[in-house]
Write a protein that binds this DNA or RNA. Structure first.
Lengths: 240, 240
DNA sequence: ACCTGAACACCGTTCAAGT
DNA sequence: ACCTGAACACCGTTCAAGT
């Protein structure tokens, strides 16, 4: 007799939206987007698939709630209390929070793209935008540039986070568990793939292929943030 | 007797990968990702669902090929011949090509995120990276900064394009057909939604909400590109 | 070599029926 | 009020059979 569920667990406190979302995040992290089904989720919660619909309207809301939960946790680096750090450093902290979240939850980036196209700016985008915008305001940026500067930061972060999630997912699929050695091996693979591209068609990529090997993702990401911050600062110097 | 298909069309030249991908893009554009099914695609091509599998291994490859086709067309602004324009202007052209592509194909941004996480850097990312990298090289950037600068540009573009695709999709779903008047109406909706946010929790967003109304998406996008380009330039001045 | 279409193993979602 | 689980209308994919 095979065990039916690897999660017997005592009884079960009554189902709740919170518990369902929590279980959904867990499933997304462990078995991926394709593994998150209402049947699997129900089994995980020791209930039937129909029960979930009492608390959640459908799969769209479920994915949205999972995304929001993870983003909210990632962005909560600024506890609305003491703001001893410089705005630039706080931007870096928020950015890194999201970056690391996409590494821990490789499904996040795609869900962000998907989420944004469902309910516009619904709940997750304003969170990020507000958090970054406060720091922009705290810098020397004139009000007319607030929107552009904050948008640029957010777009860079979302793009980079998406890219990182992609890489993490690829590495995970290649069976690399995430240790530094494995990560290096993965980057070697990428670098080798780049060097294998047609030199006629991709001369630039081949020229920088060796720069990929051994570089640190987070460091690279922060270098980009610094670059965008430099652009924000440079933009309203005398002459602009 | 109802007509069975709204696409009788003479006979049909024999099926081909190219024709299938073309039809897939058409379906994605008209009925969205959820509307692209093998059965619908087969009907569109006056054949059976099984026939498609002779030319394409499965849905993943189908979506990947559709994405690549659209990206390749969008990035092909630099005909490898005369390069009279400045590198900065070429960056703007490539960036705008992708931006407009996400407007014409709202499913593109999500597919980009998805695609990148399947086969790493497979076919679409190198195309974009190469195209931008050539321009970075043509600017005054020292070789050590090529990778960072090109990455920053690409990440900003992907993030902004994703955001734009999201907005386009939302506007389309709201029944706005894309004319300027409708677009303005949509932005009014966004602006109003922002102003309705809790002022305690979102003070910054409320402060910039009025800046959204009447702003031009493409102009805003290009302002971000200019900002990133300024960051790239500023970054290797004396003192850095 | 290329196409057909029934069949299989799933999905998300609904809903009468239970407690 | 909350949960159950069978049932419905789909999917992607396979594969024997055709041409």
């Amino acid at each position: 007799m095979a065990t039916r569920s690897r999660r017997p667990e005592r009884r079960q406190e009554p189902l709740s939206r919170e518990r369902i979302v929590e279980a959904a995040v867990e499933l997304l992290d462990t078995v991926g987007e394709r593994g998150l089904t209402f049947r699997a989720l129900a089994q995980h919660l020791s209930t039937g698939p129909g029960a979930i619909y009492w608390h959640i309207t459908g799969k769209d809301e479920l994915l949205g709630a999972a995304t929001e939960a993870v983003v909210a946790a990632a962005v909560a680096v600024e506890p609305s209390g003491r703001t001893a750090d410089s705005p630039e450093d706080t931007v870096r902290a928020v950015a890194l929070g999201l970056f690391d979240a996409t590494e821990a939850h490789p499904w996040l980036a795609m869900q962000l793209a998907m989420q944004l196209s469902r309910t516009p700016w619904a709940t997750v985008a304003p969170r990020i935008f507000e958090s970054l915008g406060r720091q922009v305001r705290a810098m020397d940026v004139p009000e007319a540039h607030w929107f552009t500067a904050t948008s640029a930061l957010m777009h860079y972060i979302l793009g980079a986070a998406g890219q990182n999630a992609a890489n993490s997912a690829s590495a995970a699929r290649a069976g690399l568990t995430g240790g530094d050695v494995d990560r290096d091996a993965f980057l070697d693979t990428v670098s080798a793939a780049w060097e294998a591209l047609d030199p006629e068609e991709y001369p630039f990529i081949r020229a920088v292929a060796n720069q990929v090997r051994g570089h640190d993702d987070r460091e690279q990401f922060l270098a980009g943030i610094t670059l965008v911050l430099a652009g924000i600062t440079a933009h309203h110097r005398p002459g602009h």
